[in-house]
Nucleic acid binder design. Structure first.
Lengths: 352, 352
DNA sequence: CTTTTCTGCACAATCGATGGTGCAATGACT
DNA sequence: AGTCATTGCACCATCGATTGTGCAGAAAAG
């Protein structure tokens, strides 16, 4: 309320008002004033003036001078998916609590876009970067490297920077075992009763497929290659794969493993076009957790990846500085059907 | 590959390499060189050098000088919710296509946090701000105003800046009518068979409740106040409300309107604790669209808000500059049960 | 051949904050 | 009183880009 001025106050304005020099004002306002032996009284005076005039530092100027910006980036494949959006939510909270500013951007799983986006972030002198689910983590790594930007990979590992990923193999094993056991309650399960849909040529998919196949072979004795149906991370392609299977067999597999909630959306598209009988007794495992996906009209086992822990670990690694390009595994958890987990939203105060 | 140097090239580096002055280099690289009558040959030379050395402008320096940053902000209540995350997705795409950089942040529906976050954004000299679902849009407006920052409200209207919101009244009418008609297929519906859960003291909730009540009164003749159960935007509170109703009545209402997908998550939490019979024949309307929510084991009518159109309209208003603080309504669409709509993800190329 | 008009560019101030350096005033000590 | 350490602060270069201004040389006009 104090200033009618349209422009934001700068340290020079406060310098004039207080009679002190700009550098003194700067020191007071950025907290380094004790080191600079500024008198307490002077500091008080300046701080009062600053409050009165609603001073806030120009972070571009600060960033320019100090070649740091207080920005921490998170590169995502996409936003509108519960896994990544809850990762964004945890990321924000943690960045904020460290007094920095989160910058969340998506690059649509396009390697070229990924590099371009990171170039842009670098132009803003971001301090650190989390690279989540990048199609080409090592390509992004090189860009970061050239700019001296500290970074970690999340969710999909690279070979050149430290990576923190879900233990996809173990997760897939748990999930596969769960759906097999559940399906066997309804009668013996043969190897062609169990399929896997989704995924593509990335590390996560490979590991999940490996876990799936290992458990399936162990429990069912075999795993014909036709039972693995990679469809990429696209609802449309996944729907097509279900449709193709359905045309060939007149029904869906009794049980199947879906590689991600994005692929599970493909199943929804298929379902929308078919009557309820089509899927009355299927058993589904989905490698991702979605609170509504868990309550579909058939049993859906899900895997909840611990994105919060992954982010935490990421900061730990960045803080440790120059960790080796090791891959850290974070254990996900199996979520039985019809389960509503709490999420980051629950941390919010929402009275009334 | 050309430079082994660790540091990023600046216009001064290129100035030395090219023999031209820094200002010439700057003009060439920012496109203003024709206006400055730089020879084509000179421009070419500099551009080649720039490519060779992987030059990218330091956007903090540019921003400092020009007091613009190329950043466009989107303030969200939360990330991990399909409505807001798909808004973030559309926002990103549109900002990118305008050659700017999106900055998406959430403020957890906390008015104080909202203002603080916006202060931070202002410190980075963002050029424009979209304020989505703010608890206190006018409080945020004042902060923006003081900094001369152009902004619009999305989803929840303010009185001081142009707002673009969903036509909540009409949407609620459509939704209410749909669930009433569907419920009546199973036999006559009395006024206490139809409830509304969720929402709080904000404009959207008011309008939705108004629409609900108007249609309910028109079609069912009455609407006892007890049928309106505001629970805030919290899954936990919503679950508690369902639990309370269930304890009192031994069942859920035959049909009910849920104010948002966040509240629908509260319903999931309730369901998780009760056997299937509890909700075998309920009819639900949810004011929000979620692809999995649409396939729950009971009919769920949903409202899809057109966040893409809202963002587009927002840019139109900002471009027009100084629009009056009018509220623009965007019509949402009714989504019948078991419907899988396409979303921003479908724009992605995902071959293989 | 001189005067005017363009061309093509260099110079220097500037955006706001930071941090090294230096210096006057004060107090402590011999 | 003279030396020295300490306190408290001002000065100034600097980060990398933008932009108004000015000026030399070439071309055009007279």
């Amino acid at each position: 309320m104090a200033n009618i001025s349209k422009k934001k106050a700068t340290i020079y304005d406060l310098s004039i008002l207080s009679g002190a020099s700009a550098s003194t004002v700067s020191a007071v306002l950025n907290g380094s004033w004790r080191k600079r032996r500024i008198k307490e009284a002077t500091a008080q005076l300046i701080q009062n003036l600053a409050n009165e005039h609603g001073y806030t530092a120009n972070l571009q100027a600060r960033g320019l001078r100090s070649s740091r910006s207080g920005l921490v980036g998170l590169l995502l494949p996409v936003h509108d998916n519960r896994y990544f959006s809850s990762m964004a939510q945890s990321f924000e909270a943690q960045v904020r609590s460290r007094g920095q500013c989160p910058l969340v951007v998506s690059a649509c799983r396009d390697p070229e876009e990924e590099r371009k986006v990171v170039e842009t972030l670098i132009s803003y002198s971001i301090d650190e970067l989390f690279i989540a689910g990048a199609t080409d983590p090592d390509g992004v790594h090189k860009v970061c490297e050239k700019a001296g930007l500290k970074h970690v990979n999340i969710d999909l590992p690279g070979t050149l920077a430290p990576s923190i990923i879900s233990d996809n193999y173990e997760g897939a094993r748990m999930l596969t075992q769960a759906i097999i056991e559940r399906a066997q309650e309804d009668g013996p399960l043969s190897p062609d009763d169990l399929y896997l849909f989704g995924g593509r040529n990335d590390h996560a998919s490979h590991e999940r497929i490996r876990g799936f196949r290992d458990v399936k072979r162990a429990l069912l004795g075999a795993d014909p290659d036709v039972c693995i149906q990679p469809t990429g991370y696209s609802p449309a392609m996944t729907a097509r794969a279900f449709e193709a299977f359905y045309e060939g067999h007149g029904k869906l597999p009794r049980a199947f493993f879906v590689n991600s909630s994005i692929n599970l959306e493909g199943l929804m598209r298929f379902l929308a076009l078919h009557p309820h009988e089509t899927f009355a007794d299927i058993i589904v495992g989905c490698y991702d957790y979605d609170p509504f996906g868990s309550f579909l009209p058939f049993p859906v086992f899900m895997i909840r990846q611990d994105s919060e822990a992954m982010i935490t670990k990421g900061f730990a690694i960045l803080d440790a500085d120059r960790g080796p390009p090791i891959t850290h595994l974070v254990r996900p958890t199996l979520v039985p059907p019809r389960t509503a987990l709490t999420g980051p939203l629950d941390a919010l105060k929402d009275i009334e």
